[in-house]
Simulated assay, not measured.
Amino acid sequence: MKIDRLVSMIMILLDKERIGAQELADMFEVSPRTIYRDIDTINMAGIPVRSTSGVGGGFEIMRNYKLDKKVFSTADLSALLMGLSSLSNTVRGDELVNALAKVKSFIPADKAKDIELKANQIHIDLSPWSGNRNIGPHLEIIKAALQESKLLTFGYSAHHGNQTKRTVEPYQLVLKNSDWYFQGYCHKRSDYRLFKLSRISNLQMQAETFTPREYQKPILEISDIVETMQTKIKIRIHQEVMDRVLDYCAYEEFTPDGEEHYTVDFPFIENDYYYDILLSFGNKCECLEPLHIRSEMKRRIHDIAALYEN
Rank of each mutant, 00 (worst) to 15 (best):
D191F: 07
S157W: 10
R50Y: 02
Q204T: 15
L151I: 12
D257K: 02
L278W: 06
V97D: 14
H187C: 02
L152S: 03
T90Q: 11
V168K: 03
L80H: 08
Y215P: 01
D191V: 08
N283F: 07
S105G: 08
S157L: 13
G155L: 08
A79V: 08
D276E: 11
Y215H: 11
A119T: 02
A25K: 08
T211Q: 05
F254Y: 03
A207Y: 06
K188I: 10
R166Q: 14
R213A: 09
Y262T: 04
Y262I: 02
R294G: 03
F59A: 03
D94W: 12
S127M: 14
R300F: 02
V226S: 04
D272H: 11
I222D: 06
T41R: 00
E116W: 07
E23D: 14
C287F: 01
N134G: 10
S88P: 02
I304Y: 14
L67H: 06
V7Q: 03
K165S: 15
V241Y: 02
G20A: 12
L291Y: 13
V97Q: 08
K232E: 10
N89F: 06
Q163S: 10
L175V: 06
E17D: 13
E17L: 05
S198H: 02
L152Q: 01
S8V: 02
A109Q: 13
I142N: 04
L246M: 13
K118T: 11
R37I: 01
Q163A: 08
Q239K: 14
I19V: 13
E95Y: 14
K176M: 14
K102F: 10
E214Q: 09
P267K: 06
T41W: 01
N89C: 06
N98D: 13
R213G: 14
L288A: 01
F254P: 04
S86P: 05
L279V: 00
S88V: 09
N283T: 15
A207N: 10
V174H: 07
E240I: 10
I47T: 03
V264A: 10
E116C: 09
R63G: 03
G83F: 01
F254D: 09
G57K: 09
I135G: 06
R50V: 11
L152P: 04
E309L: 15
L307K: 08
E227D: 12
S86V: 04
I200L: 06
T228W: 00
S31M: 01
V97P: 00
G93V: 13
V174K: 08
L139G: 03
L96Y: 12
E17I: 04
R213Y: 09
E116K: 15
N120Q: 12
K111E: 15
K298P: 00
R133G: 07
D303E: 13
I61L: 10
Q172T: 06
D257G: 05
Q147T: 05
Y275P: 05
I222A: 06
I10R: 00
I219R: 02
G184Q: 00
H261Q: 15
E309A: 11
Y185N: 02
E260C: 05
Y215L: 10
I141F: 00
L87C: 10
L146K: 07
H292M: 07
K69V: 08
Y308S: 04
H302W: 01
M62C: 08
I269P: 03
I141V: 14
S190P: 01
G57T: 05
L194M: 05
I293H: 04
L246H: 14
N202M: 12
M62Q: 15
